[in-house]
Amino acid sequence: MSEGRPYGFEVVRLDRVEARLVAYDWAWARDNAERVAQNWQRRLASRPGLFDGPVLLSCACAIADAACTVEFFETTYSRFIAYRDGGSPDGRVANAFAAVVPWTADGAVLLGEMGRHTANAGQIYFPCGTPDRDDVRGSGVDLAGSAGREFLEETGLRLPDDAQGEWALLRGEGQLAFLRPVRFPEEARTLIDRIERHCRHEAAPELAGMVAVRDASQIDDGRMPGFVRAYLASAFGAGDGAEAADVTP
């Protein structure tokens, strides 16, 4: 980990995030249509249930005075997944998404293990998803609403009424992860039991299980994406500069 950039990610605490939908001509996707089609067929061969619906990606992001303005444009999931699988070669376009980071009353961070039928099977991260049309409000994109919706769908939990509005932005590897740390009044075991009951009633639950992390020694380099490892390193004070962003609720 480099100084101030755990696992190669910049960690920025934000008081405000403004997101808007814009028109954008994505040259990479247009020029690589055949690669996109081939990649999608490869993906479908292993996971036939994948759906090529509309998603939103970012084409611009600016930060000033603890406030962030991010611009989104609409594309298809097949284009996004080909772009991501290819290492995100267009430096301007980023996979931007929002997620709730649930902190428990006894000091744990809860993460979900993705189910075998999902595109990221076996990985461990915060319940989240790429924004889509359901998150568009006029010309704006509701990142807080997107994070809360995904969290509710995957865990069955609603956010506490006193949840704060601060964010932690993790920027790196072609990603803009807008994380919203939220403190829950229950302890980890109670929340995990509630989430597991919710998943048992789902026909095809996104989550295969839950993981409670209480210190940096529990960071899983093999199954946790970089933005998750970077957040946990910052939150639990692992490595140079890890505490600078104050990413706990």
Rank of each mutant, 00 (worst) to 15 (best):
D142T: 11
Y77P: 01
A96V: 03
T118F: 10
F126L: 13
G122I: 04
A121W: 02
P89R: 04
M114A: 04
G86T: 11
R79M: 05
N120A: 06
W103E: 14
V141L: 15
D132G: 11
A82W: 07
G129W: 03
S78D: 13
A82V: 08
R116Q: 13
T130G: 00
L110I: 06
V141I: 15
D142G: 09
G91H: 14
T118A: 10
N120E: 08
W103I: 13
P131H: 00
I124D: 00
A121Y: 06
D90L: 09
A108Y: 10
H117T: 07
A108D: 04
V136T: 00
F126K: 01
G140W: 12
L110W: 09
L110A: 09
D85F: 08
R79G: 12
N95K: 08
T76G: 11
D132W: 00
R84F: 12
Y77A: 03
G91I: 09
D85A: 15
A82I: 10
F126N: 01
G112Y: 07
D106L: 12
V109T: 10
A94L: 09
V136L: 00
G91M: 15
F97N: 01
T130P: 04
S88Q: 14
V136R: 01
D106M: 05
P131Q: 03
H117L: 06
A94H: 15
V101H: 07
D106E: 07
T118C: 05
G140D: 14
A105S: 08
P89N: 03
P127D: 02
G115H: 11
A98T: 03
V136Q: 01
A105P: 08
G112W: 06
